[in-house]
Nucleic acid binder design. Structure first.
Lengths: 189, 189
DNA sequence: GCAGAATATGAGCGATCATTCGCTTTTGAT
DNA sequence: ATCAAAAGCGAATGATCGCTCATATTCTGC
């Protein structure tokens, strides 16, 4: 389909050539369609990038959803470990694209959507903490959720995108252990 | 001086109107000089943004340097707490500019410089940990430094830039406490 | 086979931008 | 007062971009 080709071409250009090279003409060219067709399906360049973001987020969610299904009924340490593993997998769906989007999203109107996206993580995590309140030593759930979600996101984001490009299984395991110890230690003192 | 006016104008535009509006003509206009003069002192737009970045980083360093002077001789908990406070102050030097720069730096060639900048933090922190090895329960210094630096940076960055715009003194104190507990707990088990 | 609808095309328009260069003004040493 | 160098100026250039629209092609139900 023309639409898919356009979204795919946009994603490819974002990854391989950067945001600045993602002109409508170039996107249409790479997609193998004409600019005219592009504007038949998308109101403008912004909408195309938004579509890429949405597709990427849904791919991430598909990858992660099952991973976190049983978590709600599990003890804190198990749950946290699984969350970190899930977060790493999420970042690995398409690391390069993830990076470009993270960097360029502020420029697109989609900023709100992404904040809602991370807000979802926040609420999900706080809900889990509420259900496990008896295991925890926290007095401010809001603050604790903020600290944990921020920490896990930053740790996995930096690990996948900046540190040693090829995250070996061994270092990866060490990272998961460290993150788990960090967060559970904080939650359960 | 013309140079200062240009750098200041660039910073103002970045904060008030965003990266896209920072055209050379507009910068010169706001600075009260002509485009010609702009190109007399800067090889191009990129160099101007780079100058803004450099100035901002130096302001941050000036604010933080003293803050972290005695840290190396202090116990882990005190040191970590001071580092977090310093990180928050650093982010508060010019939050709006800090945000724009963090978002737009990838687009400028200055990416390398910023990575070196955070690499400095990393090395500084690892050096401190080395000197306090006896107090710690860590087997991988490299990993522990990565975890701590990433965590502190993300926590303060998100707190200052995203959460509740007006970070009251009370929530701010709670955040510092939480961060300190998080990191020291991890380091000292 | 046909007509009309849906889809696709791409040259071109207007706007914007970074950058240049011939010119003018200011400065400061003599 | 003189004048050369330094600093400043801004209209003009050429390139790029997002986007439009008149035209061409393909599809669909009959």
């Amino acid at each position: 389909m023309t639409v898919d080709a356009l979204v795919e071409a946009t994603a490819r250009i974002l990854v391989r050539e950067g945001f600045d090279k993602a002109s409508t003409n170039h996107i249409a060219d790479v997609a193998g369609v004409s600019v005219g067709s592009l504007y038949q399906y998308f109101p403008g360049k912004e909408a195309l990038v938004a579509a890429v973001i949405e597709r990427h987020q849904q791919e991430i969610m598909k990858t992660v959803r099952g991973e976190l299904a049983e978590v709600s009924s599990q003890p804190v340490e198990t749950a946290v470990r699984k969350m970190i593993v899930a977060a790493i997998k999420a970042h690995r769906v398409n690391p390069k694209l993830h990076r470009v989007l993270a960097e360029q999203i502020p420029r697109v109107g989609k900023l709100k959507d992404v904040e809602i996206f991370s807000r979802q993580n926040f609420i999900l995590f706080r809900t889990y903490l509420e259900s496990r309140l008896d295991e925890l030593r926290v007095d401010d759930l809001e603050l604790a959720s903020f600290v944990c979600v921020t920490t896990i996101e930053a740790l996995t984001h930096n690990a996948v995108l900046h540190e040693t490009e090829v995250l070996s299984d061994k270092t990866m395991e060490a990272l998961v252990n460290a993150g788990t110890r960090l967060v559970t230690g904080y939650l359960m003192s």
